[in-house]
Design a protein around this nucleic acid. Structure first.
Length: 431
RNA sequence: GUCCCCAUCGUCUAGCCUGGUCUAGGACAAGAGCUUUUCAAGCUCUCGACACCGGUUCAAAUCCGGUUGGGGACGCCA
């Protein structure tokens, strides 16, 4: 039975890199029908915060990485001490006193250490370049490397899948496995995700938290798909791939060795791919709380079918969920937000006569549906002997406040006769 | 400074293990066009890479060595 773990430290949010590590652990567990274990590494009492634990758990759930077991290192201090004392008794460790208390330190003996990485192959280290390792700090808390080894061994972790930045921790940990007589798990070191400017992803140059992407309106399955493509490919030039399909094809040994740059452009593209193919009802479910928050709809009293229709109208042009909020405002807001540049460009000219005639036509329509609206409009421009777009653009701006948006006749239909008349009237000069 | 990892279009990658089928394929971005009612979407096309040097070989993107470049680690942080 394969057992993998994701071991975040609750000293900050779950960031892109952590999410990606969680993804590869989770997907490997799924692929091998093993267990995915979550371990909260909260040994640093000063920096660990409950709010971060909640945030990390929430983000993992949002991403869809459900765990089979969860552990907290802060509850296992006795265990770490027990193993440290065993090493002490075996003469493999020694104590050192400081003002604060007594630390237990592991004695590193000279030897060659070989790591057979599942992704990178053989890596050799010379232990003479490694200092003696603190196991238990003088304040009684375990160090990262020690707690990590004791936990991975006692939790029967078979494969340690983690970031590249842990490669240099691995020989230290292997020494501890050997000293404790624990079987050594398989190791797979994932390449790091870099930012465009070079170096690791950092808050300074953009969003790093998984929750940030959620807030910006990215779909979890799009984000996961994008992250999966950073250092792994399903083959056959496939990119948009269902996670269940990916599970069938995935193996950790196929992961790339090269660090990848996080590219927002491609994430945007990916999100659009998911957004436009997603079921409109499901999308509506995601949008409703956001619309309510904006005050566009009342939480418990709104026309759901109407919202679904609007979602369908915008769906294929959305990059993020938030685009819907920004673009569909004119359907919900009482006061139209007018883009001044758009107004200047399309509504400076007096179109009173054209608008009035169009309103008359709308009013006399036997049927108010998209096709009929369009037919009567086409008829009108023919009669006026003007180009359709010469009137379409100004009307769109008058109705939506924008130069962009869905087709005009859909807009009129869903806006309704009343609002259409009202908004066009504002641009009809009396006299 | 020491140790470690990595190296195909601007970006993500396929190919590399098991040399020849690679005048290196796909996607994003960029540019052009088509469509058109704007913006998207869609479709077509264009631009664009095996870091460098040497070796092995009849043959190297693919194997080996070095150089350069990039990244990471060297805490009683995790």
């Amino acid at each position: 039975m394969i057992r993998v773990r994701f071991a975040p430290s609750p000293t900050g949010n779950l960031h892109i890199g952590g999410g990606r590590t969680a993804l590869f652990n989770w997907i490997y567990a799924q692929a091998k029908k093993g267990k995915f274990i979550l371990r909260i590494e909260d040994t640093d009492k000063e920096r660990s915060k409950q709010e971060f634990v909640d945030e990390i758990l929430g983000s993992l759930q949002w991403l869809g990485f459900n765990w089979d077991e969860v552990y907290y290192q802060s509850k296992r201090f006795d265990l770490y001490r027990e193993y440290a004392e065993r090493l002490l008794k075996d003469g493999k460790a020694y104590t050192e006193k400081t003002e604060k208390g007594e630390a237990i330190i592991f004695k590193v003996t000279p030897q060659a250490i070989q790591l057979n990485d599942l992704i990178r192959g053989k890596i050799e280290f010379d232990s003479t370049t490694i200092k003696d390792q603190v196991l238990i700090k003088s304040d009684g808390t375990p160090t990262y490397n020690f707690a990590c080894v004791v936990d991975d061994a006692t939790m029967d972790i078979t494969h340690v899948i983690r970031g590249d930045d842990h490669i240099s921790n691995t020989p230290k940990q292997i020494l501890l496995y050997q000293a404790l007589g624990f079987p050594i798990p398989g190791f797979a070191h994932l390449p790091l995700i870099l930012q465009k400017e070079g170096g690791r992803l950092s808050k300074r140059t953009g969003a790093t938290a998984i929750s940030d992407y959620r807030k910006m309106g990215y779909l979890s399955n799009a984000l996961v798909n994008y992250l999966l493509l950073l250092s792994w490919a399903p083959g056959e030039n496939r990119e948009v791939i269902d996670i269940n399909e990916a599970v069938k094809l995935f193996d950790v040994t196929d992961v790339n060795k090269t660090a990848a740059t996080f590219d927002l452009n491609k994430l945007n593209w990916m999100n659009n791919q998911y957004l436009k193919t997603q079921d409109a009802e499901g999308l509506t479910d995601l949008l409703i709380p956001l619309l309510a928050e904006k005050g566009y709809i009342a939480q418990d009293n709104f026309d759901r079918n109407y919202v679904v229709s609007l979602v369908k109208l915008f769906q294929e042009r959305l990059t993020t969920l938030n685009d819907f909020l920004d673009w569909s405002d004119f359907f919900f807001a009482k006061d139209l937000q007018m883009d001044p540049a758009a107004e200047k460009k399309y509504l400076s000219k007096d179109l009173s006569r054209e608008f009035s005639l169009f309103i008359e036509r709308l009013d006399s329509l036997k049927q108010f549906d998209i096709a009929t609206i369009e037919a009567s409009f086409r008829d009108l421009v023919k009669e006026l002997n003007i180009e359709a777009k010469a009137l379409i653009h100004p009307i769109r701006v008058a109705l939506t406040g924008k130069t962009i948006g869905p087709g005009l006749f859909e807009v009129i239909y869903y806006l309704g006769k009343e609002k259409t008349r009202e908004r066009l009237n504002k641009f009809i000069r009396k006299g």
